[in-house]
């Protein structure tokens, strides 16, 4: 297992290097002078003289490949440069904001899993009853709600009008409720429907008939057969959701003044803070590749066919 893991991690390296080259080139070839961006981001007067000084300071006068090599060699030592805006090392700043985002997404993730399984199985079990129709309505509505509007609605009702939950910042448990819900509801809406479908797909598998024919109780069939396979089919999707949640907190952080990476990144984009943007893209890419890897391994581990792989035996 450990050998497979390290091999798979190793095979990710070329993708990441390739990606870093593409991003580096893209950022250096698009119109807009990084030197100007640097000056405006650090709120210095943009004069001809200043641009010249900064161009040399940042090494922008050197050929692109030389810049890349120097960026890459310092990246190997975890030095990704400093932010144009603050002049602070990017890694440090990122690590300062990242925990808040992780907290938010992990809670949202758990909420999504819980509600997807409960809602999905309820609507599959009570299919074509009001439970099913209700969950269908919820999922269409939930998938059509702009998440920023949902956030404001929740804020307006629960925070401003009813005063149950605070409106922003981190702190107690109550601070988490509204942002987590805002983040989770659209995903619950989409994936509970998907889970229902995959449960009904399991129903059609041939060994389900045999299980009934040998007189197992509906409860056993539901829990041991249907739910189990439904959850296994859901697994790759859950990986995607986790990635989405980690990288997709911009809007929620904006609405609830959440001090996370999303807001940090938004500022960087508006201010054209190139080193920060570049670092963030690489972090996101690595995160997704890593999540995919974890899902793959988890799936292999949970599927006895892959766990006990014998050579040359193929199974349906």
């Amino acid at each position: 297992m450990l050998r497979i893991l390290s091999w798979r991690l190793f095979t990710l390296v070329p993708s990441i290097i390739l990606l870093s080259i593409v991003v580096f080139l893209a950022l250096h070839l698009i119109p807009g002078d990084p030197a100007v961006a640097y000056l405006s981001a650090s709120q210095l007067p943009i004069t001809e003289e200043a641009i010249e000084r900064v161009t040399i300071e940042l090494g922008l006068d050197r050929p692109v490949w030389e810049q890349y090599v120097s960026w890459f060699s310092s990246a190997l030592t975890m030095d990704f440069g400093t932010s144009y805006m603050t002049g602070e090392p990017i890694v440090e700043e990122f690590l300062f904001y990242f925990p808040a985002t992780v907290e938010l997404s992990v809670w949202a993730f758990l909420t999504v899993i819980l509600f997807v399984i409960v809602l999905g199985s309820a609507s599959a079990y009570f299919r074509k009853t009001w439970v099913d129709y209700g969950s269908r309505l919820f999922s269409i509505v939930g998938a059509s709600l702009p998440s920023f509007w949902l956030g404001f609605l929740l804020l307006y009702v629960f925070s401003m009008t009813l005063g149950i939950f605070p409106s922003g910042n981190r702190g107690t448990f109550a601070h988490y409720v509204l942002p987590v819900l805002t983040l989770a509801i659209p995903y619950i809406a989409i994936y509970s429907r998907l889970f229902r479908t995959s449960l009904l797909e399991v129903e059609k598998l041939p060994w389900m008939f045999s299980a009934r024919a040998r007189g197992l109780s509906e409860k056993t069939i539901w829990i041991k057969f249907q739910l189990r396979h439904g959850v296994l089919a859901l697994l790759p999707v859950l990986g995607i959701v986790m990635g989405y949640l980690l990288a997709g907190t911009f809007i929620v952080e904006n609405i609830f003044s959440w001090p996370g990476v999303g807001r940090y990144m938004m500022n960087a984009i508006v201010q054209r803070d190139y080193p920060v943007i570049q670092f963030y893209i690489l972090v996101i890419a690595c995160m997704f590749l890593l999540i995919n890897l974890i899902v793959d391994l988890l799936q292999a581990w949970l599927d006895p066919r892959q766990r006990h792989q014998k050579d040359g035996v193929k199974h349906v």
Binding site: W207, S210, G215, K224
Partner: peptide, 24 residues
């Protein structure tokens, strides 16, 4: 019906892959 299926009436399908849940 449940207590009769299996207990009184046994069933053997054509497709051998259709007998057992592949994951257990």
């Amino acid at each position: 019906l449940r207590s009769i299926r299996g207990n009184v009436l046994g069933y053997i399908p054509q497709n051998v892959q259709a007998i057992f849940d592949p994951y257990r």
